[in-house]
């Protein structure tokens, strides 16, 4: 790769940094209207829903990986396990599943 690659990296670094840094620094010490605060408090759970669905079903070309993985993860989480157990448990379930393929 030639010098354009490094300019591209610089550009990518800048445009990924801007959306990360502007709200955290600009909003520091500012009180937002209550309605906006309430919407922002809703964001984490909405984000999780959007990050999980529908992408979880398409982790592999074989859709059963996603379906079984999602069921395993929800099952282990609902049973009350912490995040690490949910992650390792789901990986284990899929490792066993792929052994049957």
């Amino acid at each position: 790769m030639s010098s354009w690659y490094w300019w591209m990296i610089l550009g990518m670094a800048i445009v990924t940094y801007i959306p990360r840094a502007i709200p955290l620094t600009f909003l520091e010490g500012r009180e937002l209207p209550e309605a906006v605060q309430n919407v922002l408090r809703n964001i984490p759970y909405a984000v999780l829903g959007a990050l999980i669905f529908p992408a979880v079903f398409f982790i592999q070309e074989n859709i059963w990986f996603g379906v079984i993985g999602a069921v395993a993860a929800f099952g282990i989480a609902i049973a009350g396990a912490n995040v690490m157990i949910v992650v390792l448990g789901s990986i284990a379930v899929l490792a066993i599943f792929s052994g049957f393929l």
Binding site: I59, A77, G99
Partner: peptide, 23 residues
Amino acid sequence: PHFLQAAMSIALYAMFIGLLVPS
């Protein structure tokens, strides 16, 4: 190894699920 690669592709989604469910 392919089986591990395939199994580990659930990891981040499992984490999202593990973070969401308790709430």
